[in-house]
Amino acid sequence: MSNLKNTQLSLESKKRLLKEMLFGRRFEERCYEAYVERKIGGFLHLYSGEEACAYGILDAARPGNDYVITSYRDHIHAIKSGTDPKRLMAELYGKVTGCCKGLGGSMHIFDVDKHFMGGYALVGGPFPLAAGIAKGIQMKKGEQICICFLGDAANNQGTFHESLNMAKLWNLPVLYVCENNLYGIGTRIDRSTAVVDQYKRVSGYNIPSRQVDGQDIEKVYAAAVEAIDYVRSGNGPYFLELMTYRYRGHSMSDSNAYRSKSEERIWGKRDPIITLRDRLIEAGEFSQEEYQTMDAEILDEIESEVIKFAEESPEPPKEMLAKYVLAENDPYVTGGRR
């Protein structure tokens, strides 16, 4: 492997990531409340519990420059890519100031300026799109890579196999990150999937892969540094499986009755935020008081800036209904030239 980077997070980075992950958690939990208050509609899929995955991987990447694509559980990947949380919350509120002008919603967050290429609601849909973005990067001889985050259940779609085959065949610069939270909607992985270790399923395509503890951001980061370096160096695709757990149901309409309380307790003890916080406290680099201050500041920012912006923003005008169906004034529609 060329140009191996340091796989260790600095103390400064750990503190920053603790704050970022806590922000992500508080953002999602505030979405929960807003959904219960019926401020947010539709389907809402929360990321709480899985924070170390998106933050750990993307901290090792070049957010805003590398291309990121994911499923409907997409808020945190957008935030880490650089999306303004105010515009994200406004989108969830369906407001015209939202990152997609209120036309996308929770499952369809896009921030193309930040190279966040979207959240998609069809399970497995982004696999080939990511390979295509990587094809574009390859044609432009760009230094970026495409990072595709999807859940374990997406690997049972045909697009998983079709895309891995093409990505390897054409040596495309794409990193597939499997966030294995053990459930596909309400069905546990061993009841839907013949091979439960997802990283093993990739070997048939000669794509290197690894399984990593997705609750420990230091381990996620270290694995991401190596995987990203591999892909960026022109070696073709890589597959990382991160073992993780979502605290909420698949979506807000999910009773979550299919999981035992004891299982939830076990995973609750492995919380990615608490794990990192306690590690910093034990090392004498951080205190409980500092954490509480950090948390209070985050809660205040979410309330006084993020929620306030979403609440006070206007709805999209009715004239917007048919605005983005087709390109406007495209000369080739009438046989003209550009």
Binding site: P128, L129, A131, G132, K140, G158, E162
Partner: peptide
């Protein structure tokens, strides 16, 4: 579905 999706993804950029 795979190569059509790949083409669509490439067209994004």
């Amino acid at each position: 579905n795979g190569y059509t999706g790949l083409a669509i993804g490439a067209s994004f950029i």
